[in-house]
Nucleic acid binder design. Structure first.
Lengths: 335, 335
DNA sequence: CTGAAAGCGCTTACAG
DNA sequence: CTGAAAGCGCTTACAG
């Protein structure tokens, strides 16, 4: 089995120097159209495959971007990963994936490994913990790094963040339930000390305060199981609650699934709004009203920012918020 | 900003030659423990980072494995991707991700790109279409490639496959429903011409035939929406059906969610079994009986096979089946 | 617009 | 066990 052809073989075949082949490869406009064609033909003829490792070594920039996700099993992040990967491949970059599984030590090891692979940039939806070490590692590598969804901060150190406007989402949900005539609105799910939970809750709390109403907050896991449990608890302990805003769609779907068994009519007795607009939310019974973070657009914007940073050196804003919108379906009695 | 240290800097710092540093890097046992320690210390002191691009170029083997998935938005594949990535990182490989989105042309472009990046191996859950070209591309690159879940075949050409024993899963589901006392059992969902659908259905058909019963097959999309629609249709047109085996959990969850509205008691009037054991299936109302493909183990085995192929040259079996098992929950009236 | 030369940071024989 | 030399396949100035 013969070894792979190199640009030297291409040059020989096309009757030019290997510099010329390299220029064609890089799309340099200085090369005559005719020459360019001849070179491309030669490549096709001998089955040339570009060797990016060599290019990376010489030019010190790879076409790889590291995507480090705290929990890839969560459909919300998966959808982001899928969209991001596709947007990036259109820009000529490949995505190297790492699932940190909410484990900061694992996260650090994976970031180290990706640095060795010479990724040109990082997109990180961080796992909490060991923030100082992780930020130092990233800063030390000098690799452009954009945080998404969540933020890691340590004294002085921080990295640009792109996140959906969670606070506004919380507001939209609360305002919607009030407009629907709800009298008592609860907030369910989300771990209490997490920034994301606090943001979503803050929007809800602000609206209730403006209206002079008393909030009811039951934080906890962000799972269907927690939603089911809380539906029962509300039914028993807070029967006056007629509207709930859930930390995410999973919690909301849990609430909905528990309703029939409790004799609650969702969308009438209890109006439910989720957060994230995951795919399942369209197909629940009843379909779930939710706050959409517009993941495909968010992923495209993320790709645009990191590519701009790498290629043009455009530093993203320190903290950018992406738009969210309310999607009204039957679970909140809408339409 | 000073540029990154190289093994030459490490050698200087440690007072050895750069060859020695390289040997330490590769864990070569020929180096004295004392020297090894000194080298490691020197690396830590000057903040050395291994440059894999250089190593890849010289040794012609990268630590990258390409994972090409037909539909990364499907939670079943996501869970596989997450598990696989983690198993692989333990073996010292990074995973480069590509979502082909069921588009064979996109799939080809992504494989090409991954070949340029010099991936040491491919794991592909293929999108159907352009099989001959895709197989030729893979064969031409000479990269070890293992297919998972699905199979691409063209005359003569084929690649090793690792897949769950779908046929056995279909059998297990059918036998279970019969043991539960079902009289008339239908098979729902899955595109009719797909090999995976055919396998799952074949197990079901075999059992029904052995029992001298008449099958009822309603193939179609593999979505919750299709499941909901079919529940209504069965209710109207085939009220005698008291057991259904669904192509996957999504279809089954759709069926379950439609039951309350139709006045059907799932697990009693209608026993439902799904396929895949996705996470949501534990939390549905009622919890869903299903055939588990044991994705974490499957991912570990996939990693083991591709790493063995790359490192030891152990060619995987042409077609290996991984075990499946029935998980009985309330939707089939079990327990 | 094209060619000859050097070098990116490693690994790989090959001597000692 | 360690050192000097060559080379992986590109890109990058630098002449012409």
């Amino acid at each position: 089995m013969k070894q792979r052809p190199t640009i030297l073989d291409v040059a020989k075949q096309a009757g030019v120097s290997k510099s010329t082949v390299s220029l064609v490869l890089q799309g340099n406009p200085a090369v005559k159209e005719e020459t360019r064609k001849a070179v491309r033909q030669a490549m096709a003829d001998i089955g040339y495959v570009y060797n990016r490792s060599a290019a990376t070594l010489r030019s010190a920039t790879s076409g790889l971007i590291g995507l480090v996700i705290n929990d890839l099993r969560n459909p919300f992040f998966t959808e982001f990963a899928a969209s991001f990967q596709m947007a990036l491949s259109e820009a000529g970059f490949a995505t190297v994936l790492a699932n940190a599984d909410e484990d900061p030590a694992l996260q650090r090891r994976m970031i180290s490994s990706l640095v060795e692979h010479g990724v040109a940039g990082f997109i990180i939806s961080p796992s909490y913990g060991e923030e100082a070490e992780t930020l130092a590692l990233l800063a030390g590598s000098g690799t452009p790094t954009l945080q998404v969804f969540r933020t890691l901060e340590a004294e002085g150190a921080s990295l640009p963040v792109l996140a959906p406007d969670y606070l506004r989402g919380g507001r939209l949900a609360a305002e919607h339930l009030i407009a629907q005539g709800c009298r008592r609105i609860a907030f369910l799910g989300g771990l209490n000390d997490r920034p994301v939970t606090r943001e979503r809750m803050k929007g809800y709390l602000a609206v209730l305060e403006e209206q002079g109403r008393t909030p009811l907050v039951l934080t906890g896991q962000s799972t269907r199981a927690f939603g089911k449990a809380m539906a029962a608890r509300l039914h028993e302990q807070h029967p006056d609650v007629d509207g709930v805003i859930c930390f995410n769609d999973l919690v909301a779907l849990g609430v909905l699934s528990a309703c029939p068994g409790l004799g609650i009519r969702p969308g009438t007795d209890l109006r439910v709004v989720g957060f994230d607009d995951i795919e399942d939310s369209q197909d629940s019974v009843p379909p779930l009203s939710t706050i959409s973070c517009n993941i495909p657009d968010f992923a495209t914007e993320t790709a645009r920012q990191i590519v701009g940073w790498i290629r043009e050196g455009t530093l993203p804003p320190a903290r950018a918020l992406s738009p969210v919108r309310l999607i009204v379906r039957a679970s909140s009695g809408g339409a």
